[in-house]
Computed example of a mutant assay.
Amino acid sequence: MKKDFDDDLPLSFDPEEQLRMENQLLELKLKAEFGAQTFSGGEVPAEVQNTFLKNVLEFENSYLQSGEIKICDILGNPVLKSEPELEDRELEISLEEVNKLLLAHNITVDFGSSYNNRTKYKFITEELFAESIVHTGVPAMMMHFIYEEFHPDHKTDLFNKAKNFITAWFEKEPDKILWEMGDRIMFPGGTALTKEQIMQKLLITFSSYTGFSECKYVISEINFEISGDAGIACIEGAVSYGASINDQEAIAIQGNFKLYFFLEYGWWDIFYFIFPGFDFP
């Protein structure tokens, strides 16, 4: 039977146009088969887009075809002593060997706080090894695991977020401040501001001063309540800093601050705050 068209014919006889059309087809394929949203165009060269889209398609196909497998199976089911069986020096050596084995299979484990070697070894060999994951087998793809995702340390997490907020304020970095915030921020009266509106307020506030000096802060209280997967928290403390206007003598700004957080999907976001030097509309 004679075909009405040739599948091997190029999409266009113009190489650049052919590459552009191929990218569009790849985007449509990713969206239709995997629901993936891609954004092409701009200043990114078509060749770079093409390579990126093909890599994404390869990953999605590998992910779809891969079944779940335990991490210990990926590692070849190593025979290891349990944590109680090891003396301190033996455990230190075994932990180092286990980490090398994980890294050899492109797996890393991060610990957000300081934990002793026994806690680390016990977690890796008893919990992480038993974890089932979808293993795509894509070369050079690293798998990162965080201890706190298995054992949340909410107090430390909240402390760090408050510290990040305050430090970003002193350094006049609104982008970093917004990183700690939710999509909408409440303010007195019950009205909400979007991140974009808060950004504009911060830019106006920071543009009023040439710089901050003698910056000090203390975090005095961290209170939180967890119910299921949701939670609410309040961090209180005090700050003091000097705000310079046109390189003149700094104006002293000081007072108490409050940061209110909401926990959703394992992430704490600020939804309301009181901070010396910032006035809501």
Score class of each variant (00 low, 15 high):
Met1Thr: 13
Asp6Arg: 10
Phe13Trp: 13
Pro15Leu: 10
Glu16Val: 13
Glu16Ala: 14
Arg20Lys: 14
Leu28Phe: 07
Lys31Arg: 14
Phe34Gln: 06
Thr38Met: 14
Thr38Asp: 06
Phe39Leu: 11
Phe39Glu: 13
Thr51Asp: 12
Thr51Trp: 09
Leu57Pro: 02
Glu58Arg: 14
Phe59Ser: 04
Glu60Ser: 07
Asn61Phe: 03
Asn61Met: 13
Leu64Lys: 15
Gln65Tyr: 02
Gln65Leu: 14
Lys70Trp: 01
Ile71Thr: 03
Asp73Tyr: 02
Leu75Gln: 12
Val79Ser: 14
Glu83Leu: 02
Leu86His: 03
Glu87Ala: 13
Glu92Leu: 13
Ile93Phe: 09
Val98His: 04
Leu101Pro: 04
Leu103Phe: 10
Asn106Ser: 14
Asn106Pro: 00
Ile107Trp: 02
Asp110Thr: 09
Phe111Val: 07
Ser114Thr: 15
Ser114Lys: 14
Tyr115Ile: 14
Asn117Trp: 00
Asn117Tyr: 06
Arg118Lys: 15
Arg118Asn: 11
Arg118Gln: 13
Ile124His: 05
Glu126Ser: 15
Glu127Gln: 12
Leu128Glu: 05
Phe129Cys: 09
Phe129Glu: 04
Glu131His: 15
Val134Phe: 07
Thr136Asp: 06
Val138Gln: 14
His144Glu: 11
His144Thr: 12
Glu149Ser: 09
Phe150Val: 07
Asp157Met: 06
Asn160Pro: 00
Lys161Pro: 02
Lys163Leu: 12
Ala168Val: 10
Asp175Ile: 10
Trp179Ile: 10
Glu180Phe: 00
Met181Ile: 01
Gly182Ile: 00
Asp183Cys: 00
Arg184Thr: 08
Ile185Met: 03
Gly190Tyr: 04
Thr191Glu: 13
Thr191Ile: 11
Thr191Tyr: 06
Leu193Phe: 08
Gln197Tyr: 01
Ile198Gly: 00
Ile198Pro: 00
Leu202Ile: 09
Leu203Asp: 13
Thr205Pro: 01
Phe212Trp: 02
Ser213Val: 12
Lys216Tyr: 08
Tyr217Gln: 12
Ile219Ser: 05
Asn223Cys: 05
Ile226Asn: 09
Ser227Pro: 03
Gly228Asn: 10
Gly231Gln: 10
Ala233Lys: 04
Ala233Gln: 05
Glu236Tyr: 02
Glu236Asp: 09
Gly237Phe: 06
Val239Tyr: 01
Ser240Cys: 07
Ile245Pro: 00
Asn246Glu: 11
Asp247Gly: 03
Ala252Thr: 11
Tyr260Gly: 01
Phe261Ser: 01
Phe262Ser: 03
Phe262Pro: 00
Leu263Tyr: 04
Glu264Asn: 12
Trp267Leu: 11
Ile270Met: 04
Tyr272Gly: 00
Tyr272Phe: 13
Phe273Tyr: 11
Phe275Tyr: 14
Asp279Tyr: 08
Phe280Asn: 07
Phe280Gly: 01
Pro281Asn: 08
